[in-house]
Design a protein around this nucleic acid. Structure first.
Lengths: 219, 219
DNA sequence: GTCTATAGAGGGATAGAC
DNA sequence: GTCTATCCCTCTATAGAC
């Protein structure tokens, strides 16, 4: 059972990150958002970075768990996209993806943040990965695409769009629309069935000669 | 002609953003990197945000101009990807994409940074857009994809991968590999020619009924 | 245009009373 | 566990000498 103050601080950290950005968070800002004394951050978590680390891990785990049934209900790429758009829209209220983007921006300069970011990315990418695995299994696309890696591009693109949104909301909307178009393309491709499969196989044979071989799924 | 001090400050701002992140830059840090007195930032630019704004716009314009011939020489999606990977690798030295990611992270909380980020994104996305336009013109993919929007997803994905790299370098490499696989898919698709075209057209007709209509290119 | 010095706010972190 | 008070540092920005 997490004590009341710890709870408030974890929530306050996420709220501050969302409202002030990684450049605007501080012990005082977080404590004010949490409604507790500033010194308690150091008593309970040791430092601001450690608090953010804990808050980010917890929030990501909770969010991913909450969306798991939704991911499991998805039965096509376009449904996955719709889920992504909903997730993006909900960010206005909860802001968890925006928070992740902020932590990610700070990661290269703070090892605690890096750990938190890695943990959150793994959770989200894992969820996307198992969904893609299920959707693409046995399709021609699966022959050419490494699903693990694909899940990571999708995750990266999602975060990129989130950041894009902060600077240029209209363009971000257009980017989402384009993702939808790409998913249509993949679906059409899969509907081509054997024709596509043959073309893919012959292309891969050709590519093997000149390009580096396709990597197997990393750990 | 940009004065010597202004020049040093513009360079120092980019270097500091790259080395310290948006959360770690300050007038003192930038002045130290530039090797000039801290007070000169305010004399020449008015504020730290305004300096970053100017530096970011200038750097983006310079980088895009420098890469323009390379973009123009690209003749396939996979070549475009190779160019992207090279650009990504060069970031270890110049760090301009990482800088853009940092500015982007700060954009929602600072209108100056937002302007700088918008400007840089427009430049990069524009370059990618005209390249894609050239590569995809007349292909089946062009029938389903809005090139303007597509360029923005690619830009967003690129930035997302850059951030991903800061937290989890191995995964970022995997993400790049997946982009390569997607470009193979698109190429195979285009090689299918009339078959793909017919499938796309019929799919679009079906989609028009249930989904919202495809948007025309925004301004 | 460049410097020193400094005002005044806010930062992380700790000591010690309760 | 929580509080106040505080140390000492860094921050932006400006004033004023040169």
């Amino acid at each position: 059972m997490v004590s009341d103050t710890r709870r408030k601080l974890l929530d306050g950290a996420i709220a501050s990150l969302r409202d002030n950005g990684i450049a605007g968070v501080s012990a005082r800002v977080i404590a004010a958002a949490a409604g507790v004394n500033q010194a308690l951050i150091f008593y309970h978590f040791g430092s601001v970075s450690e608090l953010i680390d804990a808050a980010c891990r917890e929030a990501a785990a909770g969010q991913v768990a909450a969306y798991r049934p939704r991911f499991e209900a998805v039965s096509s790429l376009r449904e996955l996209l719709v889920l992504g758009q909903e997730l993006h829209a909900r960010q206005r209220e909860a802001g968890n993806v925006a928070v992740l983007a902020q932590v990610l921006a700070g990661a290269p300069y703070d090892s605690r943040l890096a750990g938190a970011a890695r943990s959150a990315l793994l959770l989200w990418a894992g969820e996307i990965e198992s969904t893609l695995q299920r959707l693409l299994d046995g399709t021609p696309v699966a022959e050419v695409a490494d699903v693990v890696a694909l899940a990571r591009v999708v995750t990266a693109a999602f975060i990129g769009i989130e950041l894009y949104e902060g600077a240029d909301p209209d363009s971000a909307a257009a980017a989402f629309a384009a993702l939808g178009q790409l998913s249509v393309l993949v679906e059409v491709f899969d509907e081509l069935g054997p024709v596509a499969r043959r073309a893919v196989r012959s292309r891969i044979r050709r590519a093997r000669g000149s390009a580096r071989p396709r990597r197997s799924a990393p750990a």
